Simulated assay, not measured.
Amino acid sequence: MYFLQDTNIRIPIAIEIVRSTPTQLLLRVRPIYLWLVGIFVAIAALYLIISYRYEVEQLWLLYLLLGGWLVLTFLFLISSEVITCRFDKVLGMMTLKQKTLLGTKVTKYPLWEIRQVGLDKLVSSYRVVILFHDGNYVFLPGYYSSEKNTKQHAVLSIAKFLNIEALFDLSLAVKS
């Protein structure tokens, strides 16, 4: 896993370049921040359930609220996906694998269909976008986050690998 080195705080980065060779580029996007928030919320809810000591008549309401909180947190965690994107010049394919706790979805695109790669911007949040010749596009990941530098690095790596144009500060948010 890559970490920010320019500060004293080591923050895990959600998008990483796993492998870069002349014939293959492998990116992985992990929703680490979402997992950490979900785990924190679940632990906080469990702590409140365990430590709450009030009248018996009010306990059912507390258990109902915190139980709902835990269920929502669990649903949030299982719906978050790990995305693996492999660009393979030998096969001439981009393979996009989206994996959740509920299953895996694999989509393949020919490399020759990729027109540009860019950075989609919404206020001060960003996501990597791959644009195709037919006007379609794919986001890596599907959600916005403020990690501009790491996403710029991913965009530049993909553009260099595929020898295509890199675009920055796109505004595709209205179309998604």
Results as ranks from 00 to 15, higher is better:
128 V>H: 01
158 I>M: 10
141 P>E: 15
66 L>A: 04
128 V>G: 11
67 G>C: 03
49 I>N: 03
52 Y>I: 01
123 V>T: 10
160 K>S: 12
41 V>M: 12
83 I>N: 08
122 L>P: 04
92 G>R: 07
95 T>M: 03
112 W>I: 14
155 V>S: 01
44 A>H: 05
88 D>V: 12
131 L>I: 13
68 G>W: 00
121 K>R: 15
118 G>H: 08
84 T>K: 14
43 I>R: 01
153 H>E: 10
111 L>G: 06
127 R>W: 02
92 G>M: 06
146 S>F: 03
76 F>P: 09
92 G>A: 07
44 A>I: 09
59 L>K: 10
51 S>G: 02
43 I>P: 00
127 R>T: 07
43 I>G: 03
129 V>E: 14
52 Y>H: 11
136 N>C: 02
124 S>T: 08
90 V>L: 04
110 P>D: 05
98 Q>N: 04
94 M>D: 13
117 V>I: 07
96 L>H: 06
67 G>R: 09
76 F>M: 12
43 I>H: 01
107 T>M: 15
146 S>T: 09
52 Y>N: 02
79 S>F: 10
72 L>D: 03
147 E>P: 11
53 R>A: 07
88 D>I: 07
67 G>M: 04
50 I>G: 01
156 L>Y: 10
91 L>K: 15
72 L>W: 10
71 V>M: 09
148 K>D: 04
66 L>M: 13
116 Q>C: 04
144 Y>M: 08
71 V>Q: 04
82 V>Q: 13
60 W>H: 01
115 R>Y: 07
74 F>L: 15
161 F>R: 02
153 H>A: 14
42 A>I: 08
72 L>C: 15
39 I>D: 11
115 R>C: 01
38 G>T: 01
80 S>D: 03
113 E>Y: 05
93 M>E: 10
64 L>F: 12
123 V>L: 11
93 M>W: 14
84 T>C: 11
80 S>H: 09
50 I>E: 00
137 Y>H: 10
155 V>G: 07
40 F>M: 13
140 L>W: 02
68 G>D: 04
161 F>D: 12
56 V>R: 15
47 Y>S: 05
156 L>S: 14
39 I>L: 14
144 Y>I: 06
81 E>W: 00
119 L>P: 13
54 Y>I: 05
82 V>M: 02
104 T>A: 00
92 G>N: 02
127 R>P: 08
132 F>Q: 10
138 V>E: 12
133 H>D: 12
62 L>P: 00
88 D>M: 06
94 M>H: 08
48 L>P: 13
71 V>C: 11
115 R>I: 02
105 K>A: 08
77 L>G: 08
57 E>A: 12
104 T>Q: 05
105 K>S: 10
83 I>D: 12
152 Q>H: 04
122 L>R: 06
93 M>L: 15
108 K>E: 15
148 K>R: 15
146 S>Y: 03
132 F>S: 06
81 E>P: 04
88 D>P: 03
81 E>V: 14
42 A>Y: 05
59 L>C: 02
73 T>H: 05
108 K>R: 11
132 F>R: 13
95 T>N: 06
78 I>P: 03
69 W>K: 12
108 K>G: 05
81 E>R: 08
75 L>E: 03
62 L>R: 07
48 L>Q: 14
146 S>R: 14
83 I>K: 10
99 K>M: 05
151 K>S: 11
94 M>E: 13
